[in-house]
Design a protein around this nucleic acid. Structure first.
Lengths: 203, 203
DNA sequence: GTCTATACACCGATAGAC
DNA sequence: GTCTATCGGTGTATAGAC
């Protein structure tokens, strides 16, 4: 027997307020940096006093937790949206997966810092917030497997080198393209190692 | 005309106290994390009151700055010490460079965080503290050039993928060897791409 | 249920006595 | 050079107004 989908206006309002708070926290993170998010700044943006945030989140880290889940959900959607233009050829597909992740990360460094670096003291994502990250990884592994790169070792190397290119770009040439230009060639290195025989970029 | 090297006992004592403070800060970073270093904890370890630290460092970030220079000086020395066992064959040499950096970074995560990630808010290394990092990079580029991998693009990719392996290891398998085991194969990918023809590890 | 007012402990930093 | 005292700012907890 199915539950009747009765609307709960109170719950809707609560969820909307939580959304407002998380969005405000994103804005502060974008403007001042992830670690510079303070409850006072967030409260100012949503028109509350700082302690009022505790009616919606148990602690500051609970806001980070919601942001973490939010960020991976955003990437999951970006991943799904990117399916439409996914190339059929294996080498081109690998380049495309790397580019989708790279561009997503570089577009919003504070978000990438929260998603991938473990830089916020005493913050560990909850299982709920971690779920979209796992879903994204599972979807990614399935696609890698289609191109003969689904072994854990292959995926581990791919994830590490793409992450390394992102971090090098953000740390050493923020706003530039010094490592972005080298991404295709780096993925070709990987594709050669896996044994993919499509056309490639010469060093 | 050479300056007479006259000893300055006052300056020596000052330098020794600075060393004590920096070492205490390293210990706190090792025990609690880089961002968890507080002036109170450092002062406790050296037997001072927190404000007394300001007689030796202008600000907390000045301590981080000294640690940054210290860390890269340590790596510079590790690099020099590793020269003795450097393999002659190019592929083996590249693997060796990567391993020296990887092991150094993984041995002390908080130090690596300070050296490579830019995770401390409002901290930018001073030119003085940056100098040993530049010296280390110049020495590294010269060695890469000996093996035909001295172009900026080659070095950029090498640095990014080794850094990516380190970060993946520390973030996803701290204390383990899931990415450490894949480092040689990853460097082989790079060596193949450069056109080095020594023996290699098959995927 | 939601928000405010108040308070607390801790942080980096400064001023001034000794 | 080191101390005490103190400042403004932070995350957090709680009592109570509405």
């Amino acid at each position: 027997m199915l539950a009747v989908p009765k609307r709960d206006r109170r719950a809707e309002r609560r969820a909307a307020t939580r959304r407002e708070i998380v969005d405000a926290a994103w804005q502060v993170a974008r403007d001042k940096g992830l670690a510079q998010v303070t409850l006072r700044d967030v409260a100012d943006l949503v028109g509350m006093r700082p302690p009022s945030l505790y009616s919606h989140f148990a602690a500051k880290n609970a806001i980070y937790d919601a942001m973490f889940g939010d960020a991976w959900t955003q990437f999951l959607e970006a991943q799904k949206a990117a399916e439409a233009d996914e190339p059929a050829a294996s080498r081109a597909a690998l380049r495309y997966y790397a580019r989708v992740y790279f561009d997503f990360a570089v577009a919003f460094p504070a978000r990438h810092e929260l998603m991938s670096l473990h830089t916020i003291p005493d913050f560990t994502p909850s299982p709920d917030a971690y779920a979209p990250s796992v879903a994204s990884m599972e979807s990614f592994v399935a696609r890698m497997a289609k191109h003969g790169a689904g072994r854990q070792e292959d995926v581990d190397i791919f994830v590490a080198i793409v992450g390394g290119m992102v971090d090098a770009q953000l740390a050493n040439d923020p706003g530039g393209d010094r490592w972005a230009r080298l991404l295709d060639r780096t993925i070709d290195m990987f594709a050669d190692n896996i044994g993919i025989t499509d056309e490639r970029i010469r060093p």
